[in-house]
Amino acid sequence: MSATAASTGTRPRFRRVRGWAGTLGLAPFTAYVGLFLALPTVLAITTGLLDVNGHLTWHNFSALADPVVLRTFWASIWLSLLTAAIGALVGALVCYALLGIASTRPVRVVVDAAASVLAQFGGVMLAFVFIATMGRNSIINQWLTGLGINIYASGMWLYDLPGLILPYIYFQIPLMVITFMPAMAGLKPQWAEANAVLGGSRWTFWRRIGLPVLAPSFFASYLLLFANSFSAFATAAALASQGSQIVPLQIRAALTSETVLGRSNLAGALAAGMIVVMVLVMTGYAAVQRRAGRWRS
C-alpha cells in the first residue's frame, strides 16, 4: 500500500530527472536481446526461405510435407503427448503429497532443489544415467536376465525412440512439481471449511471444488511439459547417437551435413515448423493460465 502511494507520489519527479538518460539505459539490453535472441530467431525461420544461392524459395518448406519429416514430427508430438501426460499425473500426485507442508521445511527445500536439477539441468547427464541403469551391463538388466526376462529381446531399443520415454518422464515429473505446486498450494483452507460446514466429505471437496479449481492450472502445466519435451535435445542427442528419430535430432542432422533429403536449408524449415508448434502450445498455455488466475488473489 505505502509503496504504491510513494510511487505515485514520486513518479512525476523521476520523469523530470533526465528522461533521456533512462531511455538510453534501456539501450544496451535491447541491443543485446536484439542481437542474440531476436536476430537468431528471425534468421532461423527465414533461412528456410532461401536456396543455396540466396534466392527466395518455397522448396525447403515443401520438405515439411515430406513423409520422412512428417513421421519425425509425429514421433516428436506423440513422445511429448505421452511423457507430458504421465509426467503431469505423477507430478500432480507428488504435489498432492506435499500439500500442507510449508515451503520452508527441509523436505520441501530438498524436493524443490532436486526437482529443479532433474527438470532443467540434466540433459546429457540423464542420458548417461539411463544407459548405466538400463543398458546391457547394468545391474537392473543383469538382475532381470537372472529372472529370465530379456527386455531387449526385440532389439536394443534404449538407443532408439522408445528408449527416450523413461528418461523424458524422468525430467517431466520434476518439472510438473515445480510448475503445479504453486497452484496446489493456492487451495484455501476456507474452501475446505465451507465444504465441511455444508456437510461435504473429502470426496465432495475434490470433486466439486478442488479438481474444478485446479483443472486450468493442470492443463496449463501439461502444455508446458509438452513444450519442454518437444524442444528437448541434449538427452536424445546423447542417447540416440545415430538416426534422427525426433525433430531436434533431424535439425542436428541438417546442420551437420550439407544436404539432407536433397535439401540444403532444411534446418531452417524444420526450425520454422518447430516454432509454429511451440507458438501454438505457448499461446494455449497463456490463455489457460489467464483462466487459472481467476481463483488466485
Binding site: I45, L255, A271
Partner: peptide
Amino acid sequence: LPITIPAIVLVVGLAPV
C-alpha cells in the same frame, strides 16, 4: 521467450551470428 524458442531452433540462427 527463450522457453518458447527452443535452443535447437535458436542455434540455427545463431550459427550465422
